[in-house]
Each structure stands twice: as C-alpha cells, then as structure tokens.
C-alpha cells in the first residue's frame, strides 16, 4: 500500500507504482479530504489528529481484507503507518518509511528543522495560493461525476484541496509529535531518506533509525522531499527489494 503525504495525492506515486505492480499487488488511495476522495466525508474532529488518517488506512485494510501488507508511507504518512501497525499489527508484514519525520518542530535535545512560526508561514503560503485557485477549484471540490474531464483539465489539480482541509492537514502534519510512537514498531522497517532534504534532514532519519530497533536505513542519492518523483528507479528498487524479503 502506497500512502501519500501532505500536499498532493496518490499521483505522486505515478513513476513508482507501475514498477512495483509488475511484482506486487499495489493499493493506491487518497486520504479523505485529498485528491479525488469524497470531501463530504471529511470531518475536522477526525482529521485533526494523525489517528484519523490511520483510521483511513485501517478502513481500507478491512474493506480489502489486506494481510501481509508492506505499507509505504511518504512523509507524514510514514508516521500514519507506524500508528496503523500499532493498532492492528496482524495485518502488517513491514513498513517502509519514506523521508519520515516524527516531529518537524525543534525541541530540547531534538532538531526537527522548523519552528512554529515557520509553520504559520506555510499556512500563509497555502492561503496565498488558494486565493488564485478558489474559483477554478469549485468544480473539483463540488465534484462533477458526470463530467470528470472538468477536473482533469485543471492544472495543479493533484495538489488541490479545500483550503480549510489543507489548513487542518498542514497543522496536523507539522505540529504533531509522534516520537513516542516509534518505540511501538514491531515489524521489519526500512527507512528511506534523501541525501538532501530540507523537510526531513538526515539527522532526523538517523533519529528514526535509532528509535526503531532493527530498522534499516538507506540514503537515496536524491534531493528534495519527493524521491518517488526525483529518483523513482532507486526508490522503487529499494521498496521492491525490501518487500521481496518480507514475502
């Protein structure tokens, strides 16, 4: 199962999913509130904590009756995977944490890379860009089941969502502190980090690696926070090698 992070939707896996599908059954999804999910099902109370997102993952697991699952979580979804595996360990054969961070904001003795003011700035950036999008976003948000091409034609549509939903997701993502959850991991875990990633710097990768006993850490020769786009072959290769072992 490939789980997208904050910002865009399952389209981010477009270069990786076909490679993995040659060998494995691949499950792709959008969290409620993202991509082409049913926005009417979104409730702030549920999605204001990462537990709500883990609920989406487990709902899908139950619906599809998934077992021996290798869960690949990008960015914030890495921690969603950790929480899901803690709630229903029987379903998970392994976790791939792609550029994870259990806490983005600096704390005493911990460097996540950001301050709370930085997160406010991000929220302002979201606001600024929604201003220009809101008019053309309407058809996408309202949903046009009879005319799907309306949605397709919109540029930047993979990263569009309702501004209020994005704000809640951003706050949930960047203000969360999931460091304690790392100790709950009992399944084989692969941590993939990028050589240069300002959102999940290498010292955070090392922190996660230390916090999960028996985990493996692989540094991809990639820059940025989306190695599945910037280095798809290496990313898919590492995931496939790990999944092969598990199976």
């Amino acid at each position: 199962m490939l789980a997208h992070g904050f910002g865009c939707d399952q389209n981010l896996w477009r270069l990786v999913a076909p490679v993995l599908a040659e060998e494995f059954r691949v499950v792709l999804f959008d969290y409620v509130g993202s991509g082409r999910s049913d926005v009417s099902a979104w409730r702030e109370e549920r999605y204001a904590t990462l537990d709500g997102y883990a609920g989406d993952v487990l709902d899908i697991c139950r619906d599809l009756d998934l077992r021996d699952l290798v869960f690949v979580g990008h960015s914030v979804s890495a921690m969603v995977g950790v929480m899901s595996a803690a709630r229903e360990p029987g379903r998970f054969a392994g976790l791939v944490l792609l550029v994870p961070s259990p806490r983005y904001i600096d704390d005493e003795g911990y460097r996540g890379g950001f301050s709370e003011q930085d997160i406010d700035e991000l929220l302002a950036s979201l606001e600024a860009n929604y201003l220009g999008w809101s008019a053309t976003m309407a058809p996408l948000i309202m949903g046009n089941p009879d005319r799907p091409e309306l949605g397709e034609e919109l540029t930047n549509s993979f990263c569009r969502t309702d501004p209020n939903i994005a704000r809640v997701f951003a706050r949930t993502t960047f203000l969360a502190d999931s460091r304690a959850d790392l100790a709950t991991v009992r399944v084989p875990t692969l941590i993939l980090e990028c050589a240069e990633d300002m959102i999940a710097p290498r010292e955070v990768g090392a922190y996660v690696h230390h916090a999960i006993p028996g985990s493996r850490l692989v540094t991809l020769a990639a820059t940025g926070h989306c190695p599945q786009l910037s280095a798809p072959e290496a990313t898919a290769g590492a995931i496939a090698a790990f999944a092969r072992e598990g199976v």
């Binding site: 992070g5 904050f6 910002g7 865009c8 389209n11 981010l12 477009r14 960015s75 950001f114 301050s115 003011q117 930085d118 997160i119 406010d120 700035e121 991000l122 929220l123 302002a124 950036s125 979201l126 600024a128 860009n129 201003l131 220009g132 540029t155 930047n156 993979f158 990263c159 960047f174 990633d197 300002m198 959102i199 940025g224 926070h225 989306c226 786009l229 910037s230």
Partner: peptide, 29 residues
C-alpha cells in the same frame, strides 16, 4: 525563499513541476 515558502515549495511546487513539467503563477516570498 522564506522557510514557509520552502515548505510550500517542497510539498506542492516541486512535485507539481515534476509531474506537469510546468507550473504557473505561484505566490511565494
């Protein structure tokens, strides 16, 4: 960019640019 702008760049701008090959009119600081 400002730090908030960097976060936005990494989570929205860069992935969109990769997927679409172009991106227009994004407000940044």
């Amino acid at each position: 960019l400002t730090v908030g702008g960097k976060l936005y760049h990494e989570t929205h701008f860069a992935p969109l640019l990769r997927m679409q090959g172009e991106i227009g009119g994004i407000a940044l600081e």
